[in-house]
Nucleic acid binder design. Structure first.
Lengths: 201, 201
DNA sequence: GGCGAATGTAAACGGCGCTAACAATGTTAT
DNA sequence: ATAACATTGTTAGCGCCGTTTACATTCGCC
């Protein structure tokens, strides 16, 4: 009828709605038909912009990585103004805080869908960017003469496993009391011990 | 027609098939209809034994926890014959090894379905049992005068996060080369550093 | 031997992902 | 300006799914 037969920015609208829906209910809860209904468009319309459901979820995951990267980037910048050791601690806490405050997005980006490489360039690059903060922060640590007996790769593995483990255990209700603050507290405790490991070295 | 109208052990047969299917293809890939088809039974039959799909998946998860517990138990027993520190290392490696060799089962037991408490008593108890190995091993460590400046709960949190993190990052392709051996190698490296933390203390 | 409980089947409902055929709109060349 | 084409919407339909209902068969027990 009117000039609104074509939506104009359906792809972005769909993505926005998908991010919101995934954030609230998790990636498994997303249905293309429900999504189309919410946006007020036919159930086949999304297929003009995403070849299939997985592609949409990959795009959502890409946005998740972008937010994750922004959160870590912010922590990194704040970390530049404190000691190298404190900077690492702040980064670790930021990692866990993001997981605790963006439960479903975090679950998505570290799921087979979020981890499928080679399908979506945007996803790949956003993922790679978000993975660079930890090594960079640890490299500064070593430049300042701390933990130099461990090579950077192993050091990254160690620190990453630690914060990722805390985040995951929190999401599974195995650490903390369910409140995001308790996850951050656990992250602080754990990263402090990590710092102890460096000092011992 | 024959006397095989009633299957006789349909519940167990379904569970066996479900464990196999989940192990091979992951929890998301399981379909009750496909399962019934494989077992040679009508698609409504499973509902005589499981109220819904989630209940079946919880039962599969319970089996997963039982296997997990057995693997850790074995490592614990072997650990009794070596030093407390080596025992912890062996337990950590066993944790990651199980994850690497039972990818989909491990994913299931640490997923919302596997972590849903209060629904299935068998699941709950199997889960609780499997969570006791690490504290017990660390307690022995402290009884022998190691890492006594950290309280047991915090120590457990630290060690658990570390091995769980390595396991998860391996599953996501972010640690190791995809071969289960590489995950165990990472677990060894990481637990060795953990041991270093204790020694310094 | 009969009777209720347990456990199987068949058929149907609505929702899903996805595709094919078609319709409206935007774009571009002549 | 308009014809032709590409883009982006719609409708209708396929097969699969989880689940429920009504009915059939068998088991265990009096």
């Amino acid at each position: 009828m009117t000039s609104s037969y074509h939506h104009g920015a359906l792809r972005e609208t769909l993505l926005d709605a998908a991010v919101e829906l995934v954030s609230e209910a998790g990636g498994d809860a997303l249905s293309l038909r429900e999504l189309a209904r919410r946006v007020g468009v036919s159930s086949a319309a999304p297929y003009r912009h995403f070849p299939d459901k997985d592609a949409l979820l990959r795009a959502v995951a890409a946005r998740g990585y972008q937010r994750f990267d922004r959160a870590l980037d912010e922590a990194s910048r704040e970390g530049a103004e404190v000691s190298a050791l404190e900077a690492v601690e702040q980064l670790g806490v930021a990692y866990v805080r993001f997981a605790a405050r963006n439960v479903n997005l975090f679950r998505l980006i570290f799921s087979p869908i979020g981890r499928s490489a080679g399908h979506d360039p945007e996803l790949d690059s956003a993922c790679r960017r978000s993975a660079e903060h930890l090594p960079r922060s640890l490299e500064r640590l070593q430049r300042e003469g701390i933990a130099t007996s461990i090579n950077l790769q192993e050091l990254t593995e160690l620190a990453w496993a630690l914060v990722h483990g805390v985040a995951m255990l929190y999401l599974d209700g195995l650490v903390g009391d369910g409140q995001p603050e308790s996850a951050e507290a656990a992250a602080e405790r754990v990263t402090r011990h990590l710092a102890g490991l460096f000092r011992a070295d």
